[in-house]
Design a protein around this nucleic acid. Structure first.
Length: 632
RNA sequence: GCCCCCGUAGCUCAACUGGACAGAGCAACGGAUUUCUAAUCCGUCGGUUGGAGGUUCGAGUCCUCCCGGGGGCGCCA
C-alpha cells in the first residue's frame, strides 16, 4: 500500500452499522431510558448459519449490569425491533434464543445492497478517526551477521503490521534498528582492518559470508576459554595443555583490550576505523536489503537507523535522567527503578565502567520515535525472549517522560512479541551442525520447491513467468506460514506444509485469486465481458444459492477483520479470514457455474461476486505483504 | 529461587478477547471431473481443551493451586 490508503465516504448502506444502532436504541427502551456505561449490542456475524446472519449478544451483559434476566431484556428488545421500520427494512423480525441471544436474518435485498455499497474504492474500510502515526520496529539486523529465521519473523511480521496500519489509513514509519555499535562491532572492525592492512583481505570484494566468519573468529579470539582452562585444572591434563589454555586466556585478554581501544577509536571518529566500519556496514545492509526485497518487505536505507545513530545522544540522555533523578546510582551503575510499574528488576542505563548498554540505546530510540518522529503508537516486532527487557524499557521511558507526545498524550508502546521457529523435530530451527540457517538459503529452497510444483501443475507457463510465479509462491508460502499462526507461539517450520495447496497456506489463497482472474480472462475472451464495465453498470446481485450467500456474508466481514487484526497486531486473524473467504469461494466455484450460468442476470451477478471476492483477496494479500498473481 | 509465555483431535493450527454443539488442514476411509485452473470440492472417522478447584446465566478464554514444555532474570545485544 503506497502513500495514502483509500477510504469510504460515510456509507448509506452499512448494514452492521444500522443494525447496531437500532439494537442499541431498542436496548435503551428495554431498560427504560439510560443505558449503563459501555453497553453495546455486541453484534457479530452469526457463528452458525442456523442462527441467522448476525447475532447480538449484548443483552446478556446488559442483564448482568442492570440486574434483570437477560432473556426478558432480549424479548423486550426483539419486541421493539419488530415495530422498528428502519430495522425491518433490512432484516426479518429477530428471534430470541438461548439465554438471551438475538438472532438476525437479513432480507436478501439488504444483503445485496450492503455488498453493492462495499464495492467502492475502499472496500468498506472507513477512514480512521483519527489517523495516527504508527512507528514499527522491524527486521533488526546486526552488523557482520547473516539474517536467519529470527530476522525472518521480525521482518515479515513487522512489515505486515506496517502494511495493516497503512491500509487502515494511518501514517506508518518503519524503523530497522540496525545493531551496528558496541564492543562486538569494534572487534570485527579491528579484525577486518588488521587483515586488510596486512594485505590479506580485499575490502572491495568483501562478502557478508566472509565477514561473519571473521566476526566469529574475532569474538572467539577475545573470549577466554574458561571451560577448557577449568578442565585442565580439574583433571590435571598436564603442563602442556594447561600452558596452552593459559596462553589462550592471556591472548584473549589482550585482544579484548585491543577491541576496547578500537571501540574508543570508533567513538572518537578515527577515520581509519570509521572507513572500515562503514564498509562492513555497507556489505551487511546490502545483503539485508536484498533479502527484504526478495521478501517483498518494505525495508530500505530510509527505514534504517543504526544504533550508532544514537551514540551521541546517550550521554546527554543519561545526564538528563540523572539530573531529574529519574535514574539513581546502584553499585556503581546508574539504574531506573521500576517498582511503581510492578517490575522488580531495575533497568541499567549506565554501567559501572561508565559505558552505556542496549537499554540506553532503546530509551533513546523511544524518545526519538515518539518525540521527533511523532509516533503515537510504537510497535516492536521482536522476539518474545526480550519481553522483560521491553517491559523495563517501556516503563523506564514512561517514567522519564519520553513517551509524552507533542500533544501531551502518552504514546502507546507495544511489544508484538513472537515465538521461536522450530524444526520438525520440535527443537529450534538449526542446521545439522547447530548453526543458524541462512535466510537467503531458506528462500532459495522455498522458491526451488515452488518452481518444481508450478512446472508440474501448470506446464503451459513459459519459463520466465514460471520463474516469477515460483518466486511469489515460494516466498509467499514462507511468509504466510509465519503470519498465519498466533505470533506469540513457537511454530514448526515445514516446507511441505507451507507449500501445500490445501489448507490455510499462501499458495491456496494465491490459487483462489488466480482462478478468479482466470474467469475474467475467459469472460473477456469468450463473451466480451469487461470487468470494469461490470462494476460501473452495477449489475444486480442475486444471492440465491447457499454458496453465493455464504460468500456475501463472508465479504461483509472484511473491514471489521482488518481493523481487529491491526488493532491487536495479529496478522493471523486476517489470514484466517482470507482462508475462510477462499474456502467459501472454492465451494462457490465448484457448485455455481459463472460463465456457464443459466441466464445472463445470474452470470452478471456471479461475475460481480467473483470481482468483489478477487478484490478482497488481493487487498488482503497486499495488506499481509504477499504477491497476488494473475496466473499460477 | 522469582518472573513471563505456551499446553486444544495421531500431527500442524484456529476459536472474533466471556457466548450457542470447540472448528480447519494433514493423515485414514468414501464420493464428485462432457463445466470457468481437480493445485479443487463434498462426506465419514477423530476431543474429559494438561489436571483440580473457583468466579457466573455461560469458561478453551478470567482467578487460585498443581503437572509438563520453553524462555528470561541489573553491568552481553
Amino acid at each position: 500500500m503506497k502513500g495514502g490508503a483509500i477510504h469510504s465516504p460515510p456509507m448509506p448502506a452499512n448494514v452492521p452499522e444500522i443494525l447496531s444502532q437500532r439494537l442499541l436504541e431498542a436496548m435503551r427502551s428495554a431498560v427504560g431510558g439510560t443505558l449503563p456505561q459501555g453497553a453495546s449490542p455486541a453484534l457479530s456475524p452469526a457463528k452458525n448459519p442456523q442462527f441467522g446472519d448476525f447475532q447480538a449478544n449484548g443483552c446478556m451483559a446488559l442483564g448482568k449490569q442492570v440486574g434483570k434476566p437477560p432473556r426478558d431484556l432480549a424479548a423486550a428488545v426483539v419486541g421493539s425491533l419488530a415495530r422498528d421500520a428502519a430495522f425491518l427494512e433490512i432484516a426479518e423480525a429477530p428471534e430470541v434464543a438461548g439465554p438471551g441471544f438475538i438472532n438476525i436474518r437479513l432480507k436478501p435485498a439488504a444483503l445485496a445492497s450492503a455488498l453493492d455499497a462495499m464495492d467502492g474504492p475502499a472496500l468498506g474500510v472507513p477512514a480512521p478517526a483519527p489517523a495516527r502515526t504508527v512507528v514499527v520496529d522491524l527486521c533488526g539486523v546486526n552488523l557482520a551477521k547473516e539474517m536467519h529465521v529470527g530476522h525472518l519473523r521480525a521482518t515479515v511480521i513487522g512489515d505486515a503490521l506496517a502494511r495493516l496500519h497503512a491500509r487502515l489509513g494511518h501514517r506508518v514509519l518503519r524503523q530497522n534498528h540496525f545493531g551496528d555499535w558496541g564492543l562486538p562491532i569494534a572487534m570485527v572492525t579491528l579484525e577486518v582492518k588488521t587483515r586488510s592492512e596486512a594485505g590479506r583481505l580485499d575490502m572491495a570484494s568483501l562478502t557478508l559470508d566472509r565477514l561473519e566468519a571473521l566476526y566469529r573468529h574475532a569474538k572467539a579470539a577475545s573470549t577466554p576459554d574458561k571451560a577448557a582452562l577449568a578442565l585442565c585444572r580439574r583433571h590435571g591434563l598436564g603442563p602442556k595443555a594447561t600452558a596452552e589454555c593459559e596462553a589462550q586466556a592471556l591472548a584473549a585478554e589482550e585482544n579484548l583490550a585491543r577491541a576496547k581501544s578500537a571501540l574508543v577509536a570508533l567513538q572518537s571518529h578515527d577515520p581509519a576505523y570509521v572507513r572500515v566500519w562503514e564498509r562492513i556496514s555497507e556489505v551487511t545492509l546490502a545483503a539485508c536489503f536484498e533479502n527484504c526485497r526478495r521478501l517483498h518487505a518494505d525495508v530500505t536505507g530510509e527505514h534504517t537507523a543504526g544504533e550508532s545513530s544514537y551514540a551521541e545522544e546517550l550521554a546527554p540522555l543519561v545526564a538528563d535522567l540523572e539530573a531529574r533523578r529519574v535514574a539513581e546510582p546502584s553499585d556503581g551503575a546508574l539504574v531506573i527503578r521500576l517498582d511503581e510499574f510492578g517490575i522488580k528488576e531495575p533497568v541499567i542505563v549506565r554501567k559501572s565502567d561508565g559505558g552505556f548498554i542496549y537499554a540506553t540505546t532503546d530509551l533513546a530510540a523511544i524518545r526519538r520515535r515518539v518525540q521527533k518522529l511523532g509516533g503515537e503508537v510504537v510497535i516492536y516486532a521482536v522476539d518474545a525472549r526480550q519481553s522483560l527487557h521491553f517491559r523495563q524499557v517501556f516503563a523506564g521511558a514512561r517514567k522519564a517522560g519520553y513517551t509524552r507526545t507533542a500533544s501531551g498524550a502518552e504514546a502507546t508502546l507495544v511489544h508484538a512479541a513472537f515465538g521461536t521457529v522450530l524444526g520438525e523435530d520440535g527443537r529450534p530451527f538449526k542446521t545439522r551442525s547447530g548453526d543458524n540457517v541462512k535466510l537467503a538459503d531458506l528462500l532459495d529452497e522455498a522458491v526451488a520447491r515452488a518452481e518444481r510444483a508450478v512446472a508440474e501443475k501448470n506446464p503451459a507457463l513459459d519459463a520466465a513467468e514460471r520463474r516469477l510465479v515460483a518466486e511469489a509462491v515460494g516466498i509467499g508460502a514462507i511468509k504466510y506460514a509465519d503470519l498465519s499462526s498466533d505470533r506469540i507461539k513457537d511454530y514448526v517450520f515445514s516446507f511441505d506444509r507451507m507449500l501445500a495447496f490445501e489448507g490455510n497456506t499462501g499458495p491456496y489463497l494465491q490459487y483462489a485469486l488466480a482462478r478468479i482472474r482466470s474467469i475474467f480472462r475467459k469472460a473477456r475472451e469468450q463473451l466480451g465481458i469487461d470487468e470494469a464495465s461490470l462494476v460501473s453498470r452495477r449489475a444486480a446481485l442475486a444471492l440465491s444459492a447457499p454458496e453465493e450467500k455464504a460468500i456475501a456474508l463472508e465479504l461483509l466481514k472484511y473491514p471489521g477483520v482488518l481493523a481487529a487484526s491491526a488493532e491487536a497486531c495479529e496478522p493471523h486473524r486476517l489470514c484466517g479470514y482470507l482462508y475462510d473467504l477462499a474456502t467459501a469461494f472454492s465451494a462457490f466455484f465448484s457448485n455455481c457455474p459463472v460463465l456457464q450460468a443459466p441466464d445472463d442476470a445470474t452470470r452478471l451477478s456471479r461475475l460481480r461476486l467473483c470481482h468483489l471476492t478477487g478484490r478482497v483477496l488481493k487487498d488482503g494479500l497486499d495488506s499481509l505483504g504477499l504477491i497476488p498473481l494473475e496466473r499460477m
